[in-house]
């Protein structure tokens, strides 16, 4: 089991013919992911070809989903049009829309999020690396890779990873795999201040997933999403959780690459978040090199096996 996506999940790519979308579609196909359709308005009827794969391209998401049974979309559409692309996936009633695009105006996301209320589609992102549920083949091939994560560093297993940062997720996954700990699913929720799925949403899913035995939560300065998740963990989660917060040295009020990572109030500094993690029984990684070890400490303290 895994959360949100499994190796049999059928996905479509919005923006499959753009350079960025095409590159990562090829990598996902190489990984063994079921990429069944692409969407580029005006290019319907063409095909995306890669090493024997022939992925049909459609003019709209609804058409693509109807024809192929795709239930999840990965969105690589450029920022000015990405909000519209998300709404199109929502309108087609997909299960999940994963917005990889970085640089979507905040106002667009405010409107998109409001328009999604009451709809069935879940949004992950934007400005996120996407999701990976590792497969059982060599280098975890045969898994489901949605987005831009390097598939080969994963191994199938029992640790769930949720993070706002792409490269820090890679760092955590690499540490886990190096220590022989595989992953159930890794979810990059993205660095933007207005996004879809939160840390808490993912933690709840991991908590309910019998195959996930431990969780790594990676956060940043800014906002209160990690704090909200930590308080829920204290009340409801019986699985070991390790946490890391990036940005202890960031100066207040400066944007550190991620639009969401601007320190505003007193509870969104790294020190405040780390203190709350500790209060909530989350094992804090002292440095980013310590993430997998922190989870091992937490699991050992509870007598839980992660491998």
């Amino acid at each position: 089991m895994a959360i949100l996506i499994t190796p049999t999940t059928k996905i479509l790519i919005q923006g499959i013919t753009g350079e960025f979308g095409a590159r990562h579609t090829r990598l996902s196909l190489d990984y063994g992911t079921q990429v069944v359709a692409g969407v580029t308005p005006g290019k319907g009827g063409q095909h995306f070809e890669h090493q024997g794969h022939r992925v049909p391209i459609f003019n709209s998401v609804a058409e693509a989903a109807r024809a192929t049974g795709a239930t999840v979309s990965a969105i690589f559409v450029p920022p000015p049009f990405a909000g519209d692309a998300i709404l199109e996936a929502v309108d087609a009633d997909l299960d999940l829309a994963v917005a990889i695009t970085e640089g979507i105006p905040i106002r667009d996301m405010i409107r998109v999020k409001r328009a999604m209320q009451g709809r069935r589609t879940r949004l992950v992102g934007p400005n996120c690396p996407g999701l990976v549920t590792p497969g059982t083949g060599p280098g975890s091939k045969g898994g489901c890779r949605i987005g831009i994560a390097p598939g080969y560093i994963h191994r199938p297993g029992r640790v769930g990873v949720v993070s706002r940062s792409g490269t820090l997720t890679d760092e955590a996954v690499f540490q886990l795999t190096s220590k022989g700990l595989g992953q159930s699913t890794c979810v990059g929720i993205g660095g933007d201040p207005v996004n879809g799925t939160s840390h808490l949403d993912v933690i709840k899913l991991f908590n309910a997933d019998p195959e996930t035995h431990g969780i790594i939560m990676i956060g940043e300065i800014g906002g209160s999403a990690e704090v909200e998740a930590a308080r829920w963990v204290r009340e409801h989660c019986r699985k070991p959780v390790a946490g890391f917060i990036a940005g202890a040295t960031a100066p207040a009020g400066r944007r550190m690459g991620h639009a969401g990572a601007v320190i505003g109030g007193h509870e969104d500094t790294a020190a405040a978040k780390i203190a709350i993690f500790r209060e909530c029984g989350i094992e804090v990684a002292a440095t980013p090199s310590d993430m997998a070890d922190a989870l091992l400490r937490s699991a050992a303290a509870r007598g839980i096996k992660l491998s």
């Binding site: 940062s165 490269t167 820090l168 990676i218 940043e220 690459g257 790294a270 980013p288």
Partner: peptide
């Protein structure tokens, strides 16, 4: 990567 860059400073 922004997250890795911040945590490298840390």
């Amino acid at each position: 990567g922004a997250g890795l860059a911040m945590s490298t400073m840390d």
